[in-house]
Design a protein around this nucleic acid. Structure first.
Length: 945
RNA sequence: GCAGGAUUAGCUCGAAGGUCGAGCCCGCGGUCGAUAACCGCGAGGCGUUGGUUCGAUUCCAACAUCCUGCACCA
């Protein structure tokens, strides 16, 4: 009985669904991974393999994740998974940064006025709850996008273990002499009597007096310019804060700007040239005559007279002096300005504040002493007028910092803070000049910065950064657990006591510092080594959160002692050059004298389609969790892989949709593979490489090239190259070329024929290679595909336990070379001819000569070497071009590449089975609608039936 | 203002001192045996201004725009 023809076609068949349903299926996959303990199983599988440590930078636990955080975690996941599949033991311990002001502020707002009556311990408990809530949320969200890691035991900066390491890191600095207590100008709210962080300052309008004040030069003016010899010379400063004049220690000039000496009314005034006219007008300098011009640097270290105090004022230089308002000369009070303070440090000026915590001026002249700063303003103006130092006064409405809570204007005030000195000589180092700063700069050179500009950027920052102020007057953080002498105020630094406090923290957490438990730490009889006093109190400041997160790898190693020092890689956004990269580096320098990382990678920022930074307030943010729920976490991952993360990247709904389209293409490529190997058993059916069809051999070599490119790209974290190479490979090489050509052979040949088995062998090996090469990025889909591929012995249960394919696995035999340049070049030529044929077919199609290409036969005219090449492949050309017949002629084809293609209607009739046209249709008596090729296949099938 | 980075097709990218190129998108068509698929053809571009060079989108310099961090007016 004859076969029904349609039933003899080997159409693809697979249970692997075309439609992914990612939002529904991914959570099921996550559950399976959770149940099987995929992360732990990977650890077991890689036990003893070379370690690769990507150390996670802790995100802040004050909200849900956004696209930037998602990208960050996906990139880390790509790296960890690709290292794992390259054979490394690459553990990943995610971390969270839990302390700090933003949470405290939010909790403040929730608590309202209640906070003022609460004990620090209770406020801390509220903050902890808040941080834990978002830690849990973010953990769920990171898992949702397919990130693998030690999520059940992450590191968190608020755990007792971590807090104890923060403290021991500080003590390492402290005991080695890096730490000092000193003054620093900070924002201060006189109403609330507290220091404020930048984030707690809001700018509002405020009316200030403006005054122009004369500072007389004490030194010989000839030193500036010979023409000034013997003259009475002064400079003029401008300020909006007269109350800071009692703290005036210096006058600052810009080193490179030009200044002018103006003579008027028998006196000489030095001001910036650019502002001279303005100053002369405001100060009523009649008939000003320029005597000399000179750069500001001439004024350095000259001495001036304070306008009303018995104090010598130093001429200093500062780059921040500007030429748009004032006089180009800036009165400098180190205790009352951030920049003034830095300049003061540089020139060794006194920064003692004579303004108390309530804003009252102390230790001053009777005219203003004991007055509140803003009340003192007019009094000081009057004093200046009396002393003949006031040249002009006015009022100015300008934006001025105010307290975010009470909305009163704030001031800068020098207060005592803890510092790590950048100028500390390194212990065991080469001497005084071998400091924390210089050694750090040296060590930066030993790190691999990616992109390379990171080295310069961080070096510039370390070069110019001030000493590290590590103290904060806050509640939610790790306390600087040091005992202070009640007699002289000096901090105790006893390694034995220090160790006991660290142990206390490890046991009971940093909260212990706020409980009586910590009072018992100090051994009885402890005396202050400075004054002998036996009474101590506990420091109430907490650490800068950057010191905390900077200690993260130290904390991780405390937990996992066999992790290597240093780690292999840190990966965070460019904002961390100021933050974590820097604080981690300094913490490592203080404890190990080497950096904590071998390499640092910096992704760019996430922007919208207009190049604006993504933010909730702008309303242009893209929520990765929302994308996961609607399009799939895999789409988020693929998007991350699609962009060059070293630059700023664009994220948008439209891009996600586009990536989702691409996903479907890749998925369909896999589906075709799976559909065509359904009846293929590698052990039984695989064809050895040397017996495969030339096209199949060629495609396996192409796959080797693809695999090599992909592995190289993983090596250099160039995921976007993988994404684009993958698309190209799937679309151009596989779908449009190989798989299209292969349909005839796979569908039409006898199922067990060598020709079909050869194709199946290649398709199967390609699938095996692809699924493993892509698993680090397409973690969900590759895991889904894994069990659908033909079973082979010794196969891991999860694709994530497998390793990248070796070329031997792709070709089936290690002895086969992965390239055959002669043959591969021939295939390049054949594909070029194919392109010409397709163009000619399209033309014929447009002329209504043919519809499907099988209705055509083509005649190709070519000259050598192409002609001989085609001649050698004459038998397979019709399949390569998917036409019914090909004839060759030698001659000078005048088409592209010396090839001319002519398309004609195919001879004969359409074979009902294979749709090719043949003049032999009708010859088979049993199957009169079939061509000679199908006739043979059907005979074979019948003999087997 | 300082430091660092970016600018190539509508989008995402690649390459290179010598007519730039890929995929997607878009337009047109084919197919109906990968079918919520598949195949073909086509259209479309190097931020601005100078310089080096036989030749510059590429190297150099300015400018513009955007991003990140720092500083921010005494």
């Amino acid at each position: 009985m004859p076969f029904e023809l349609k039933a003899t076609i080997n159409l693809p068949k697979t249970a692997f669904p075309m439609k992914a349903n990612l939002p529904q299926n991914e959570p099921k996959m996550l559950e399976r991974w959770e149940q099987t303990g995929i992360y732990e199983r990977i650890r077991e599988a890689r036990k003893g393999a070379p370690r690769y440590i990507l150390h996670d930078g802790p995100p802040y636990t004050s909200g849900p994740i956004h696209l930037g955080t998602a990208m960050n975690k996906c990139l880390k996941d790509f790296i960890v998974k690709s290292k794992t599949m390259a054979g490394f033991d690459a553990p990943y311990v995610p971390g969270w940064d839990c302390h700090g002001l933003p949470i405290e502020i939010k909790v403040d707002k929730e608590l309202g006025g209640k906070k003022l009556q609460m004990r620090p311990l209770d406020v801390r408990a509220e903050c902890r709850k808040y941080a834990q809530k978002f830690l849990d949320l973010q953990r769920t969200q990171f898992k949702r996008i397919g990130v693998f890691g030690r999520f059940d035991r992450p590191y968190a900066t608020m755990t007792p273990q971590y807090e104890s390491v923060v403290l021991s890191t500080f003590f390492a600095f402290y005991e080695k002499g890096f730490v000092y207590k000193g003054l620093r100008a900070v924002y201060w709210c006189m109403h609330d009597e507290t220091a404020l962080a930048e984030a707690e300052v809001e700018y509002e309008n405020h009316t200030s007096p403006t005054i122009w004040v004369k500072y007389a030069l004490l030194d010989d003016p000839a030193a500036i310019d010979a023409t000034l010899a013997g003259k009475k010379v002064s400079t003029i400063i401008y300020t909006t804060t007269p109350w800071t004049l009692p703290a005036s220690m210096a006058v600052a000039f810009h080193p490179d700007e030009e200044y002018v000496a103006l003579e008027s009314g028998g006196e000489v005034y030095i001001v910036a040239s650019k502002l001279a006219a303005d100053v002369a007008a405001k100060c009523n300098l009649t008939d000003p005559r320029p005597l000399a011009h000179f750069p500001g640097r001439k004024m350095e270290r000259l001495n001036f007279q304070h306008p009303f105090l018995d104090r010598t004022i130093l001429g200093v230089l500062a780059d921040y002096v500007t030429m748009d308002t004032g006089t180009g000369v800036v009165h400098t009070a180190p205790s009352h300005g951030a920049e003034d303070f830095i300049t003061g440090m540089k020139y060794g000026l006194d920064a003692t504040s004579n303004v108390d915590e309530k804003g009252i001026l102390r230790n001053g002249l009777p005219e203003y002493n004991g007055q509140y700063v803003f009340k003192a303003n007019p009094l000081i103006v009057e004093l200046l007028r009396k002393r003949g130092a006031l040249l002009h006064s006015d009022k100015l409405e300008h934006s001025y910092p105010h307290c975010w809570r009470c909305h009163n204007p704030v001031i800068f005030r020098a207060t005592e803070q803890w510092f790590i000195s950048m100028e500390t000589p390194m212990p065991g180092g080469a001497g005084e000049s071998d400091t924390l700063r210089t050694r750090t700069l040296e060590e930066i050179k030993n790190v691999k910065w990616d992109p390379a500009w990171g080295e310069e950027r961080l070096s510039n920052m370390i070069q110019t950064r001030p000493d590290w102020c590590i103290s904060r007057q806050r509640v939610w953080g790790v306390p600087i657990a040091v005992f202070l002498c009640e007699g002289c105020g000096k901090p105790l630094n006893d390694p034995v006591v220090n160790k006991k406090v660290v142990e206390l923290f490890a046991k009971s957490g940093a909260d212990a510092w706020f409980t009586p438990e910590s009072d018992t730490i100090l051994p009885a009889g402890t005396k202050c080594p400075h004054c002998g006093d036996a009474r101590f109190e506990k420091e109430t400041d907490i650490f800068d959160v950057w010191l905390e997160s900077g200690a993260s790898y130290l904390a991780l190693m405390d937990d996992e002692p066999d992790y290597p020092w240093p780690s292999d890689l840190y990966l965070e956004g460019g904002d961390q050059y100021r933050g974590w990269f820097q604080s981690s580096l300094l913490c490592a320098m203080g404890t190990h004298a080497t950096p904590p990382y071998k390499g640092v990678v910096t992704p760019g920022w996430t922007l919208d389609e207009k190049g604006q930074a993504l933010s909730k307030s702008r309303g242009n943010d893209v929520d990765p969790v929302d994308i996961s729920n609607r399009l799939g976490g895999e789409v988020v991952r693929l998007w991350v892989a699609s962009v060059d993360f070293r630059e700023d990247v664009v994220g948008s709904e439209a891009l996600m949709l586009r990536v989702a389209e691409n996903y479907r293409k890749i998925r369909n490529t896999f589906r075709y593979i799976l559909g065509n190997v359904g009846d293929f058993s590698p052990q039984r059916d695989a064809v050895p490489f040397d017996q495969m069809e030339a096209l199949d051999q060629y495609m396996l070599r192409q796959t080797c090239g693809f695999a090599a490119d992909v592995r190289n790209a993983y090596e250099e974290f160039a995921f976007h190259k993988i994404y684009h190479r993958l698309n190209h490979f799937c679309i151009v090489d596989l779908s449009a070329f190989y798989f299209d050509v292969l349909k005839d052979r796979l569908y039409i040949s006898a199922p067990k024929s060598q020709a079909r088995r050869s194709a199946q062998t290649a398709v199967w090996r390609i699938g095996e290679a692809l699924v493993r090469l892509l698993a680090p990025i397409m973690s969900f889909t590759c895991e889904e595909i894994w069990p659908y591929l033909p079973t082979v012995a010794a196969r891991t249960q999860s694709v994530h336990l497998a390793q990248f394919p070796l070329t031997a696995e792709i070709l089936g035999d290690a002895a086969i070379p992965t390239t055959d340049s002669k043959s591969d070049e021939e295939w390049v030529s054949l594909r070029a001819v194919r392109d010409e044929v397709l163009k000619a077919l399209e033309e014929a199609r447009n002329n209504k000569l043919i519809g499907t290409s099988l209705e055509a036969q083509v005649a190709i005219t070519a000259s050598d070497p192409v002609y001989s090449l085609l001649q050698r492949h004459a038998g397979e050309l019709r399949y390569l071009f998917i036409v019914s017949a090909v004839t060759l002629a030698q001659g000078s084809g005048n088409g592209t590449g010396g090839v001319h293609v002519e398309v004609k209607k195919a001879d004969g009739a359409k074979c009902e089975r294979c749709w090719n046209y043949s003049t032999h249709v009708g010859e088979d008596k049993t199957y009169p609608t079939v061509c000679e090729r199908c006739s043979a296949v059907l005979k074979e099938l019948e003999s087997q039936a």
